[in-house]
């Protein structure tokens, strides 16, 4: 599979009164065509910021984003416009990401209008097709977002993202605000669409069960860094980083009599304004060593493309 998207040493700092928030700090990864890369972590780890950087909703402080091998920062206006058609995003909250004063047909057709695809009449037909694709009855064309439930609103967001036939979609917590029975419908829809439309996803979520379900590969983030990345089965069966281990152990699972290791982490996530020196996880790590407080571990291949940034793993 060829590489579709590549992030190289991405950095995003937000200036605030007290200094700089290190939201994303030297993050690199690549996404192959047709696969889903899951980006998982807790609030403030930089996963959503990473997603937004990839679609250039916000500009990186430094680093490069390559799309089909081309640096999107170096593209001129016309090239960037073309790239924008191929790269779309679905947001978490389908209420705040839809215009409350536009009927949903208009919202779904807006990207077509902006890119001047077809006549007004033709676009309406295309919107009907898009609506059916995502399981919305075209009868709902003139409904407004507030008239729909969360699940159907999210389908509108998906239809809009599909309107320009993109190759790559950033899904930013697309099911987090939905009830479980509806969440399952949307997850299945995203998977069906991926197959039918040959889509590549970056799937950002805090929910490990969901990420595992939908992703081929997973990257775990903590305080702006990727601490581990591997194929989905490897990450779950051979979890290497102490943070990933704790994260997995913390997921409550709806089953009886589960005998499992309980790893309760101490304290909370340190401030991203002044992240700890050395390994950023060392302040909470149950397996920390002396070196962890002073030297930052690099993300290194532990075999078979399973990357991990931890001194303990390499016996340093």
């Amino acid at each position: 599979m060829p590489e579709l998207v590549k992030a190289e040493n991405l950095v995003k700092h937000f200036p605030v009164a007290a200094g700089r928030v290190h939201a994303v700090d030297d993050v690199s990864f690549s996404i192959m065509e047709g696969e889903t890369l899951g980006l998982v972590g807790e609030s403030g780890c930089g996963k959503s910021t990473t997603g937004r950087l990839l679609v250039r909703l916000i500009e990186a402080t430094s680093g490069r984003i390559l799309y089909r091998g081309r640096d999107i920062a170096s593209m001129n206006g016309r090239e960037l416009r073309q790239a924008r058609r191929q790269v779309q995003i679905i947001f978490q909250d389908p209420f705040s990401s839809l215009d409350p004063r536009k009927c949903i047909g208009e919202t779904i057709g807006k990207p077509l209008e902006i890119f001047g695809v077809g006549s007004g009449r033709e676009r309406e037909g295309m919107v009907d097709v898009l609506m059916e694709k995502v399981g919305l009855s075209p009868r709902l064309y003139y409904k407004y977002p507030h008239e729909l439930d969360g699940g159907r609103r999210q389908r509108v967001g998906i239809a809009r993202a599909l309107s320009l036939s993109p190759d790559f979609i950033v899904c930013d917590e697309p099911v987090s605000s939905l009830d479980v029975s509806i969440q399952a419908q949307i997850l299945n829809l995203l998977q069906e669409l991926q197959e039918r439309e040959k889509l590549t996803y970056l799937f950002v979520s805090h929910d490990l069960s969901v990420v595992k379900h939908i992703s081929n590969r997973i990257a775990v983030m903590y305080l702006g860094k990727i601490v581990e990345s591997a194929s989905s089965p490897d990450l779950f069966h051979d979890t290497l980083h102490p943070y990933s281990q704790a994260l997995l152990a913390a997921v409550p699972i709806p089953k009886l009599n589960r005998r499992r290791e309980r790893i309760i982490l101490e304290g909370g996530v340190p401030s991203p304004i002044a992240p700890p020196p050395g390994c950023r996880f060392h302040t909470r790590c149950p397996q920390r060593m002396d070196i962890c407080a002073s030297e930052e571990p690099r993300l290194v291949d532990a075999g078979g493309g399973h990357l991990v940034a931890c001194h303990r793993v390499f016996g340093a």
């Binding site: 807790e42 609030s43 805090h206 490990l208 704790a246 994260l247 152990a249 913390a250 997921v251 409550p252 309980r262 309760i264 982490l265 909370g268 996530v269």
Partner: peptide, 11 residues
């Protein structure tokens, strides 16, 4: 709450 914090609070 985040999952690791949820685990602390539930415990």
């Amino acid at each position: 709450l985040d999952v690791t914090i949820q685990a602390q609070v539930l415990e």
